[in-house]
């Protein structure tokens, strides 16, 4: 198993580590059983993601995908951010080893779970197709 230089870069210098106080959306995905937990915080103003931060317990790929996913959605509109896929995150990192693809799924799910929280807090309904699917069973992904 070999990580790309981009994965190593985002692992050793992760972007957007931290929490956002009074975040507009917070989402936690994964479980300790599988060894990866990701918590994503979003600040959303006028339909634009003005800030994104994360806390992650997990392997190198989990930290790198959290870093990359939060980077990719910052400055994007809600509609754009909802379209973020795990594949796009993995590609932006110049690929992930096959056994680590589930980490990119976790990043996608993390963003969507935070979005769901945002919609819920506003009393709005999240578009069905972008709702998170993670049921905590890690063997389903990757």
């Amino acid at each position: 198993m070999l990580y790309s230089e981009k994965v190593m870069d985002h692992f050793s210098n992760p972007r957007n580590v931290g929490e956002i106080e009074n975040a507009d959306g917070v989402g936690e995905v994964g479980n300790a059983k599988c060894g990866d937990i990701m918590k994503i915080y979003l600040k959303i103003d006028d339909g634009v993601i003005t800030d994104a931060k994360f806390n992650t317990f997990g392997c190198g790929a989990a930290i790198a995908t959290s870093s990359m996913a939060t980077e990719m959605i910052k400055g994007k509109t809600i509609d754009e951010a909802l379209k973020l896929t795990n594949k796009a995150v993995a590609e932006a990192l110049d690929g992930l080893p096959p056994v680590k693809m589930h980490c990119s799924v976790l990043a996608e799910e993390g963003v969507r779970t935070a979005m769901l929280d945002y919609y819920t807090k506003r009393g709005e309904t999240m578009p069905e197709e972008y709702r998170p699917k993670c049921d905590g069973d890690c063997s389903e992904c990757g």
């Binding site: 692992f11 050793s12 990866d36 317990f57 997990g58 392997c59 190198g60 989990a62």
Partner: peptide, 13 residues
């Protein structure tokens, strides 16, 4: 509170 592989990678650095 932390996961082993990320610990190993940072030690390796």
């Amino acid at each position: 509170g932390i996961e082993g592989e990320s610990l190993l990678m940072m030690l390796d650095m």
